[in-house]
Nucleic acid binder design. Structure first.
Length: 384
DNA sequence: TCTGGGGTCCTAGGACCC
DNA sequence: TCTGGGGTCCTAGGACCC
């Protein structure tokens, strides 16, 4: 880009605060200040009483296999966090309010906040429904002023707060946006790394997950500072060359990845966890019905988004939580549910089915846009 | 009472080709 | 004789993220 060897970039990471829960609070303002949990499957909608007051489900009433999608800061104070099993959450916070997820509504607010940011700074990388990176390098204005203006625009457009971190790269900005949550605004320069980044747990680095951080801890490496001082040879011995080099660079706050403003999907999938584990033989009709339904929905997703897929795959999760995947490449890319079902069925025949199944998924990979995939390429291949 | 659904990227072996 | 060597595709698994 224009600034190689010149001034540092200004990269912002913007993260909406407790996004789903905050959207629900817009709709149910009487819940503000309470422990509220979003998640679970088949959760009851609030019931409106005769006097107009709303009656909400409580977490203690939940039965099933769902997990917490998100929770308000009051619920987090009770130990209830995203991805926690709902039954465990119910033990920790039985009186918390329980709401079903409403993804249409979250997507609506997601579009609103992203459009508001784009008015001020157009170079935006989508990182899901509630997060973006913004390249502010060429946007005029002082950094804090600019970041505050973005926060104000988001609040004006949605009524919601967000947290922003600004630094010379995505890695540091991602860490920064969390430092002062909620409603945070943190600007960080490379010179601040020893004081502000190194004391943090290594797990705070985006890309160091539960496995890697456990391995690091076993080596006596707990903080990012520990990691920055670790012997490269030690890291290499335990993580392999590529990951070891990345760990070292990350600990020193080095990251040259650009903000990517347009990207095409690589795969589209549908999966479902059953209410009870299913047996491939005894529950065959039910399994077959679910399987076909997943394929129909996947086909509809492909068609709606304008893609065809050349690689159809399945995913199984067994009752012991192990996962198996099988996939196969088709001679011609498709979005037809019948062809998807047939290919997925062949994949299923290659998978072990002795154990009971907990989850079944169908995936479409090797995507191409339907209007560009006319079927000429396979013909050429046949001629060769 | 464990543990959703939708993604990305990486690794690694074997097939196959030149 | 030990028997190239590189490139790409296909498949399976796994770590990680939101």
């Amino acid at each position: 880009m224009s600034n190689i060897g010149c001034a540092p970039r200004r990269i912002a990471h913007l993260d909406m605060d407790a996004f789903y829960a905050s959207v629900e609070l817009l709709r149910y303002p009487e819940l503000r200040g309470q422990a509220v949990v979003i998640g679970g499957r088949s959760v009851h909608q609030p019931v409106v009483e005769a006097d107009g007051r709303r009656q909400f489900a409580k977490l203690r009433d939940y039965v099933g296999r769902g997990v917490v999608t998100t929770s308000t800061y009051e619920a987090r104070a009770l130990g209830v966090f995203s991805a926690m099993g709902m039954m465990k959450a119910a033990r920790l916070a039985p009186d918390a309010i329980l709401l079903p997820a409403d993804f249409d509504s979250y997507r609506h607010y997601s579009r609103l906040f992203k459009a508001a940011v784009a008015e001020l700074a157009p170079l935006i990388e989508d990182r899901g429904i509630d997060e973006i990176y913004i390249d502010l390098t060429d946007v005029p204005g002082e950094t804090v002023t600019l970041a505050q203006r973005i926060k104000d625009a988001v609040r004006d457009a949605t009524g919601l707060s967000c947290s922003i971190g600004v630094s010379p790269n995505k890695l540091l900005s991602k860490i920064c946006s969390e430092l002062d949550k909620p409603n945070g605004l943190t600007v960080l320069a490379m010179a601040d790394i020893p004081a502000r980044i190194w004391p943090l747990a290594a797990r705070k680095i985006n890309g160091i997950g539960p496995k890697a951080s456990a391995k690091l801890a076993a080596l006596g490496i707990e903080s990012i500072g520990d990691l920055s001082q670790a012997e490269p040879a030690l890291l290499q011995a335990h993580f392999g060359l590529a990951y070891a080099e990345w760990l070292h660079a990350a600990a020193h706050g080095r990251d040259e990845r650009p903000v990517v403003t347009d990207s095409e999907p690589k795969s589209i999938s549908r999966e479902t966890t059953f209410e009870r584990d299913l047996d491939a033989v005894r529950d065959r009709p039910r399994l077959s019905e679910i399987f076909t339904d997943l394929c129909v929905r996947l086909g509809a997703d492909l068609r709606r988004k304008g893609y065809v897929s050349a690689t159809i795959g399945i995913k199984l999760r067994y009752d012991d939580f192990r996962i198996a995947t099988r996939d196969m490449t088709l001679p011609v890319a498709t979005d037809d549910p019948v062809q998807i079902r047939r290919a997925a069925g062949e994949c299923l025949r290659r998978a072990p089915l002795e154990r009971k199944l907990r989850l079944l998924g169908v995936r479409a990979g090797a995507l191409s846009r339907r209007d560009e995939a006319s079927g000429e390429e396979p013909v050429q291949q046949m001629l060769l």
